[in-house]
Every structure is written in C-alpha cells, then in structure tokens.
Design a protein around this nucleic acid. Structure first.
Lengths: 196, 196
DNA sequence: GTCTATACGAAGATAGAC
DNA sequence: GTCTATCTTCGTATAGAC
C-alpha cells in the first residue's frame, strides 16, 4: 500500500538521519533499509531527498514534543528518567551510532533555510515545555528558562559523549548532577534565596 | 615554504571540520579556503584526506586540552568564562555555522577506528582536567567526576543550541545554571551534606 | 613542490517502459 | 506504483609533466 511505503520510508529516514546526519542521509540507504520499492521514491516524495528529510525531521521532532508536553504535568524528574530510558534503548540498539535527529539537522549544511527554522522551532517547543514544568515547581521565570536550556543542552551534549564512549554512563552522570541542581533550587525556594 | 603550506591547510581543515563535519570535509574546500597550491596535497599529506582529518583533529583537541590543563589551577569558574569568550568568537565569526571539531569526529561515520579513539581520548583528557579542578575545590571524587561530565556535555550541547538559534544566549543561560550548581556544592561542603 | 589530466565511484534526479 | 536506464555533478586519488 502507498501509505505504508511512504510511512516506512519516513521512519527509516529518521533512523538514517540519527546515524548519518542530515548531509549524510542518502535516498539509497533509506531505500535499502526500509525495503521500499526502488522505483517509487519520486512518486511518494516529489520533492526528492529534501522532502524525505523534512518529513523525517517533522516526525521525530513532534514525537519528542509530545513526550515533553505530557511530562510537563508529571514533573521534570519523570521526564529526565524517561529520557534516560529512551536514549539507553536508542544508543544500545544502534551500537552507539545514533544521535538526535533534530540536532543532526541543526548542525547540517542545510541548503534550505526552512529545515533549519523547523529544527530551531522544535528546540523552542521543548524548552517551553520544560520551562512550564519548572514554573509549576514554583521557580522563578528566569530560573525556569535557564534550567530548561541547561536540561536540553545537557542531554544533547551527553548523548554525544555516550556515542564517543560507547556507554550510557555520561548521560547518567550528567543527569545525576542535573537532578541535584533541581533539588538545590527546591531547597532554596523552601528555605532562603541563593545569592545570584 | 613547505611547512607553511602544510600548517595552513591543517588550520583551515579545523575550520572546515567545524562547519561541515568530518564526513563533509572535502580536500577541495580546504584547498580553496587555505589558498594552498592545488597540486601539492598528496605531497604534504601522503595519506590524503584521512591524514588531513587526523591532523586537524589532533591540532584542535590538543589546543583545548592545553587550555583546560592551564585552567585546572585557575579554578573552574575562569575556565567556564574562557569557554564562553572563545565560543562567542568562534560562533559569531562563522555566522553560527561552526561547532566543536572533536564532536564532529565523534559523531561521524568514522571509517577509521583510530579517529574515533582519538576523539574519545580528548574527551577523557578534558574530563580529567576538569575533575582535577573540582577535586581541588574539595569536592568528592564522584561529585567531581560527574560535574566534569556535566560541564562538557553542557557546553557541547549548548553550542548546538547556539548554532540553531544563531545566538550566544543558550550557552550563557546554561553556564549560569552550571555556576549555580557549583556554588551549591561549595555551600553544601561548607555547611552540611546534601541528600543524595 | 606544484601543475594538469584522467580514472573511478557515489549519489541525486529525470524520462519513459510496464 | 514500480522499474530500468541514463545524465549529471562532485570528490578522491593517481600519473606524469614541469
């Protein structure tokens, strides 16, 4: 069926995007790994490689946004734990060759300005979701925003270290300290104000 | 002179590595941007593209290692500030297209296992230098190590966000919270023990 | 040390058959 | 919807002249 072929190619494209980066994604590899018919690429994706890349980014970005929005009500702690669990699977399943698809687009040559804008849009969505989670904890506007930025930067950076070390430890260590910081803010909120 | 041509190509290669990534680095672009003679590539680099990449990674990684080792005696605060200053220049000078060369190699396809090992080696060097800086502050072994990992992850991740947002703000925000966390550990060390 | 010419392979894209 | 040429561009690498 047409829809299945298209959808299968998009999901495979996300995987390739994770492993090869945006510039390294080739239609041929997506074709091979998805098992999609070789002759139907430009039927399903008239825009060719660029359209496939766009769809992969959108699919991946929205998935994470949904996860982060759901977690804003569950509290930041559970979000972070969920991220560790997800990344443990993604990293081990890929032999530590997979990274974040949105990062992959953000650091790519990005012929089309549109893709770069979309990647930035996802980072903003994620930051907003996390900021709201921290605001719900009673933190100040600026603290919540900075903590959200730190959280995203930490996870994205730690994933790179995990790939290099072929181990989940960097992510666990980094997030352990991030949790400590969150608890420090709670402690400060409950007892006194920390010096700026 | 021979040495100048070779050295110039390496320095240009670092720049290209930052912007295009390891897989995206082409000998042609290094040639064009360095102004090096077009016919002398394989004279200076018998190993071709791979050798050029290797030299660029070594040069860049060692530069940062030197900076971090020097800063281990100056205290972590001054290191972080120095990193903000350096990245501000690198990012603005490149129009927010440049990233970390070691990260670029770490997430690349990396035909040669040797390059990947070297990249991981640099991450380890940096982590050790920062760990020592935190140990000098009187922190525990595990806290120092985790903080070092968090610091590197935060900077590397924040740089990606800076590139996406075309702004230095993410790095400043993330490092502001990192400083807060460091101060929390100092406060805890001086007054009591935080719950794990 | 540096140049030109050439071989080779990889990948995107299009045209037209089935 | 899918397939098979075929065209084109680009990048690495080598050979041999200067």
């Amino acid at each position: 069926m047409a829809r299945d072929t298209r959808r299968g190619m998009i999901i495979t494209a996300v995987q390739v995007l994770r492993e090869r980066g945006a510039d390294g994604l080739t239609v041929e590899e997506v074709l091979l790994r998805s098992g999609a018919p070789k002759g139907s690429v430009y039927y399903h994706f008239p825009g060719g490689r660029t359209e496939l890349l766009d769809e992969a980014l959108t699919y991946a970005g929205n998935t994470v946004s949904a996860l982060l929005n759901r977690a804003a009500t569950d509290g930041p702690e559970s979000v972070l734990q969920e991220f560790i669990d997800i990344w443990r699977h993604v990293l081990t399943d890929s032999g530590y060759t997979a990274g974040c698809p949105v990062v992959a687009v953000a650091v790519s040559r990005t012929e089309s300005e549109e893709l770069a804008d979309k990647a930035r849009g996802f980072f903003n969505q994620w930051a907003t979701a996390l900021t709201n989670a921290f605001l719900a904890e009673g933190m100040s506007e600026s603290t919540a925003r900075q903590l959200a930025t730190l959280s995203i930067a930490t996870i994205e950076g730690a994933v790179v270290l995990c790939r290099a070390h072929r181990s989940i430890t960097p992510l666990e260590d980094a997030l352990a300290q991030l949790r400590t910081l969150i608890n420090c803010h709670r402690f400060a909120r409950d007892n006194f104000t920390l010096a700026p």
